[in-house]
């Protein structure tokens, strides 16, 4: 039941992009086509889950033990940065096909605040490791849902007759606002 609540909350009610405003840069940057949006989602999901596990273990076994919680920010960002590099190298060796699909998105992920945000939130919400993993997966699904929905809308937007000044980014934001309004309907569900 707890897991069910965590999943519904992270995917719909507190959707990481539309409700918590994390990961806005890729949300705008790679949402012009559904296929790139899906690729980005895969890469984010991959790194998000691994990063949450590793940061959780470091927090519990190093930062908490030595009472140096104030180094959390610096430790987590370093872990994520090196993890992204590591995933890139391993993926290149082990699965060139997957690397082809996700490779271009990986370098962008270090500065994706959704990853660091989820890692910190897992600690703040006092989840255990399994709950943290479920939370990370659900957040990634929420990220993907928002990204792919938005990409679909933007593909249609290209065919529309948008006023000249609104073309591009401004109309994208207004559409994102309307999408966020739709997600507001999930509030209070859990």
């Amino acid at each position: 039941m707890t897991y069910f609540v965590i999943i519904i909350t992270a995917v719909f009610v507190n959707n990481i992009v539309l409700m918590q405003f994390l990961g806005i840069c890729p949300f705008l940057g790679v949402s012009k086509k559904i296929s790139t949006a899906a690729g980005m989602t895969g890469a984010v999901a991959f790194v998000m889950v691994i990063a949450t596990i590793v940061t959780y273990l470091i927090q519990k076994s190093v930062l908490d033990v030595f009472e140096i919680g104030f180094l959390q920010t610096i430790t987590f960002i370093l872990i994520i940065a090196s993890l992204v590099q590591l995933v890139e190298i391993i993926l290149k060796k082990v699965s060139p096909a997957l690397f082809q699909a996700l490779g271009v998105f990986l370098p962008l992920i270090t500065t994706n605040c959704a990853i660091l945000g989820v890692a910190i939130m897992t600690i703040q919400k006092d989840y255990n490791l399994l709950e943290g993993v479920v939370f990370a997966i659900a957040s990634a699904v929420g990220f993907g849902l928002a990204l792919i929905l938005f990409a679909g809308l933007r593909e249609h937007l290209d065919l529309m007759n948008v006023p000249k000044g609104m073309k591009g980014v401004p109309i994208a934001f207004v559409v994102a606002g309307i999408l966020a309004m739709a997600f507001l309907g999930f509030s209070g569900l859990v």
Binding site: F21, G165, P170, A172, F173, V174, A180, L184
Partner: peptide, 22 residues
């Protein structure tokens, strides 16, 4: 209230970008 809620953030920023572009 909508402007305090999340959708308002997107919409106001969209229009501000429009103005600054101009």
């Amino acid at each position: 209230i909508v402007f305090i809620l999340n959708p308002g953030a997107f919409i106001v920023l969209g229009y501000l970008i429009l103005v600054v572009n101009r």
